[in-house]
Design a protein around this nucleic acid. Structure first.
Length: 847
RNA sequence: GCCGGGGUGGCGGAAUGGCAGACGCACAGGUUUCAAAAACCUGCGAUCGCAAGGUCAUGAGGGUUCGACUCCCUCCCUCGGCACCA
């Protein structure tokens, strides 16, 4: 009686053998093989690997192993995104140092990662909080600084009062901090920024070249938010000042009856002396600035629908408009030359365009609402062609039409008038983006220090330089000091400021006493270049050697969660383009192909969370069913990018399947291998084709199902099963269940003298790993059966079936079909009007 | 409101315009067993029928086609993203 399938024994055995044999360490080049860079998004060392990690990594590893068997030199590296707020917050809570916390987590997660049996190249391990890595994050910052693309500026930044740091726009979700969910406020602070807006056009345009999910590309497009329009200047009466507005509807300029400034608009301060209603204006502006982003957007909350009513409680985003007229300030409409009032209102965003708009109530919903509320003039300047001008608009007219009330331009189509008006008022076409520069300084401890020194002496010597001195490259890394008190103050200063040892420094330019920058670099900078480092993880002379970069990059296949669609993926593209422009990289895009895994929900269909008690622990599953079962079930449970609820009994099916495989292959006496497939040849060729194609297309679920179909067929033929059949089957199985396949592969080899003897004259040679075997080939001709079941339809409805030769001609098929009693009965006296014949499939009689 | 996915048995899900429900889970019946588990076999959309077989079914309604889960139009629901972006 052979041993039953013991996953624990064979999984740890092979994990060790693979590690010791270094079989997944990818050399930089192999003669005759193409390199393939296969990458998963590196995990954050938050404590333990959850089922979501497995869902990302396990099917991804199936793909990597498949590519390796297809003859590629596959590099599949792994690392940890180890700096940042979550670790720091967790460490504060537990009263231990973030470094200690992070190291412990990395250790635990490494063990878990190893238990998955993934084919990682551990020799390339990257950990972003280690100085050998962040030295180059700092180097990258210096390069940006050198090129003028890292700059310091007073900005009205997003501020998280709980995390006590500024946040990038990308880290604010619905007005809340993405980490702790506190409501984000604003704070005017001096910050370091990367000039990502310089790359807006290219970040947008190059999306077209990428093999990425369409929705991810469209999210990036929306985030960049390009819009074409014009910048028009409105002179201020009795002043040489001008108010600039951005508009996409220059054609409506004749109907602009007032201007609106955002409450933060600097001109309000400039013109303050002339504002007649100074006090009420001031009061409104202060009030508006106190409001959070959310309060500004949300007006009135819609009532919660009564029970049984469709739809949950909705929030009406566009609320009642508020505003104040800046009395005493008038501007001139450059087209009509008429004087128009100027208002301030928080429905105008200071962060978009020029922070001021021309209001055209007749042709814009928001302006219309505002004008109605404050009784401002509404002048219609576009109307539907052929329709008389309407006295009073019941609603703004938003469609195209012809110009009215517009002097010389009357009767012109509005789209034609658009360009004419831009010329007439001597303004310029302008492209605007929603994308803002990337604020990268963080007032927190657990990150790479910004390598900058402030020197008062240098500021005096060279006022234009403001005393900002970059740390020389040779002095990198600027080490993150080990300080005891790393909790954030909330004063806008980083905890590093408390360490005088760290702060005080000799200026590298003049040698005088100077001070270090105490903010740290946003962790998104760390993670936006790590994929480059894998090419040469331990290089201490440069971020990676040019030759190695050329041999591996760009990344051929990148797999990870869709939640990174804008942040990480946009930043990475930006950094890559910057390094390309400066001669460090030949390519312009880091990730040629991208795939997302879906989200696994709890068995109750809800998002997994500890408080709901619906968390699925992968370690328990591995313990009970083995890593191979977990891997294969994750592949089988559904469409990869869709995810869905975890089915606790579903994994049983896969576990049973593996037990049956074990039983079939380890218990059999095989027939002579010359007999090849013994009646299984068609299905074998079909399965080779299907599994390969499905893995290429990330359709892991149907690949698994076709393996199950093959096993069912093999079991039916089990008394005549050949060795060749089992070898092929194991190869197809190997990417999914690497341990089981390897164990059975070796068992078969050991029992087969031809296998064990070897060709080199040695009596016994080491049996090579199944994972280094070539993927089986199939013969297209062999995937087609000799006979098929011809479907017989009458008027498109199935009426009968008959087995015929695969090459049957139409004439022959018709004759055969029309002679069948069943068909004769059905047709009666009716004559076929038409007969449709689809070779290899069906015959349809139309009557 | 705009953009992008999706809607198929009790459940997860299959179907180059050509047998809807592959594969698996759950369930039911059986074999085995002192018994249970495991394993194995059979059945399993709804409905009419003893059966052969028929009819209806892929969110709703139209259309194109010999033939539609698949293509087109209108609408509903759902998930994700964006949203006072001028």
């Amino acid at each position: 009686m052979p041993n039953p399938y013991n996953h624990k024994k064979i999984e740890s055995k092979w994990q060790k053998k693979w590690k010791d044999g270094k079989i997944f360490e990818a050399p930089d080049a192999i003669r005759g093989k193409k390199n393939f860079y296969h990458l998963v998004m590196f995990p954050y060392p938050s404590g333990d690997l959850h089922i979501g990690h497995w869902y990302n990594f396990a099917p991804a590893d199936v793909f990597a192993r498949y590519k390796r068997m297809r003859g590629f030199n596959v590099m599949s590296p792994i690392g940890f995104d180890a700096f940042g707020l979550p670790a720091e917050n967790a460490a504060i809570k537990r009263k231990i140092h973030p470094a200690k916390w992070t190291t412990a987590n990395i250790k635990a997660m490494t063990k878990q990662l190893e238990s998955m049996g993934n084919s990682y190249d551990w020799s390339r391990l990257v950990i972003t909080c280690e100085s050998e890595y962040y030295k180059w994050t700092q180097w990258l910052f210096l390069k940006f600084f050198e090129k003028g693309l890292a700059y310091r500026k007073n900005v009205l930044a997003n501020w998280c009062p709980s995390c006590r740091t500024v946040l990038a726009n990308e880290q604010v979700i619905d007005g809340h901090c993405e980490r702790c969910d506190s409501e984000v406020t604003h704070k005017e602070v001096e910050q370091w920024l990367f000039k990502i807006t310089d790359y807006a056009e290219r970040l947008l345009g190059d999306l077209e070249t990428l093999d990425w999910p369409e929705r991810t590309k469209s999210m990036q497009r929306e985030w960049i938010g390009r819009s074409e329009g014009a910048e028009i200047e409105f002179p201020v009466v009795d002043s040489n000042l001008k108010i600039k507005v951005f508009t996409t509807r220059a054609d409506t300029l004749p109907g602009a009856t007032y201007l609106v400034l955002a409450p933060e608009h600097p001109l309000i301060t400039t013109l303050n002396a002339r504002i007649k209603n100074k006090n009420s204006a001031k009061e409104y502006i202060e009030q508006a600035q106190k409001k959070s982003e959310l309060e500004r957007m949300i007006g009135v909350e819609a009532p919660t629908p009564a029970e049984g009513e469709v739809g949950g409680p909705t929030v009406k985003r566009v609320g009642q408009k508020t505003g104040v007229e800046l009395k005493g300030i008038l501007a001139i409409n450059p087209f009509t030359k008429k004087e128009i009032p100027v208002w301030a209102s928080d429905y105008v965003l200071h962060t978009y365009g020029t922070g001021a708009i021309m209001a055209v109530p007749a042709h814009d919903e928001r302006d219309y609402e505002f004008a109605k509320k404050f009784d401002l003039p509404i002048i219609q300047v576009i109307t539907k062609e052929g329709e008389a001008e309407i006295g009073e608009l019941a609603a703004p007219y938003l469609e195209d039409g012809i110009m009215v009330n517009s002097g010389d331009l009357n009767n012109l189509p509005n789209n034609f008038a658009k360009d004419r008006i831009v010329e007439l008022v001597d303004s310029k076409k302008k492209i605007n983006y929603k994308l803002h520069d990337w604020i990268l300084s963080r007032q927190r401890y657990w990150g790479a220090p910004i390598p900058i020194i402030y020197c008062k002496n240098c500021a005096i010597q060279n006022p234009s330089g403001q005393g900002i001195v970059p740390v020389p490259e040779k002095d990198l890394p600027v080490l993150l000091p080990k300080i005891k008190d790393f909790t954030p103050e909330g004063t806008g200063k980083s905890p590093l400021a408390k360490s005088s040892e760290f702060v005080k420094v000799k200026c590298p330019q003049c040698g005088w006493e100077a001070e270090r920058e105490t903010d740290t670099i946003d962790t998104f900078v760390d993670s936006s270049w790590y994929y480059l480092r894998y090419a040469d993880s331990h290089n201490d002379k440069e971020f990676a050697e040019d030759k190695k970069i050329k041999s591996w990059l760009p990344v051929n296949m990148y797999i990870g969660g869709a939640e990174h669609s804008v942040k990480h993926l946009l930043y990475s593209r930006f950094i890559t383009k910057f390094l390309h422009d400066n001669g460090y990289l030949e390519f312009k895009e880091p990730f040629v192909s991208l795939r997302h895994q879906g989200i696994i929900l709890g068995p109750d269909g809800q998002k997994m969370s500890k408080s709901k008690g619906n968390v699925v622990d992968p370690d328990d599953l591995v313990e009970k069913f083995g890593a191979d079962s977990v891997r294969m079930y994750l592949c089988f449970m559904g469409e990869y990018h869709q995810g869905g609820p975890w089915n606790p009994t579903g994994i049983m099916g896969v576990s049973r399947f593996l037990n049956r495989v074990w039983k079939l292959i380890s218990e059999k006496e095989f027939v002579d291998s010359d007999k090849k497939f013994v009646g299984l040849d068609r299905i074998m060729h079909k399965t080779i084709k299907k599994v390969g194609e499905d893995i290429e297309n990330f359709k892991f679920n149907t690949a698994v199902s076709s393996l199950m179909i093959l096993l069912n067929a093999m079991e039916k033929e089990q008394n005549r099963l050949s060795l060749v059949t089992c070898h092929l089957f194991l190869k197809l199985l190997a990417p999914f269940t690497p341990h089981l396949a390897e164990e059975l592969w070796h068992n078969l080899a050991n029992s087969d003298p031809a296998f064990a003897q070897g060709s080199g004259g040695q009596s016994k040679r080491e049996i090579a790993s199944i994972h280094l075997e070539p993927w089986p080939e199939y013969d297209e001709k062999m995937t087609i059966e000799d006979e098929f079941e011809l479907l017989i339809q009458i008027n498109g409805k199935l009426r009968d079936k008959v087995f015929v030769s695969k090459n049957i001609a139409q004439k022959e098929a018709e004759k055969l079909v029309l002679e069948r009693n069943k068909i004769k009965e059905q047709l009666g006296k009716k004559k076929p009007k038409k007969i449709i014949f689809v070779p290899g499939r069906l015959l349809n009689i139309v009557i």
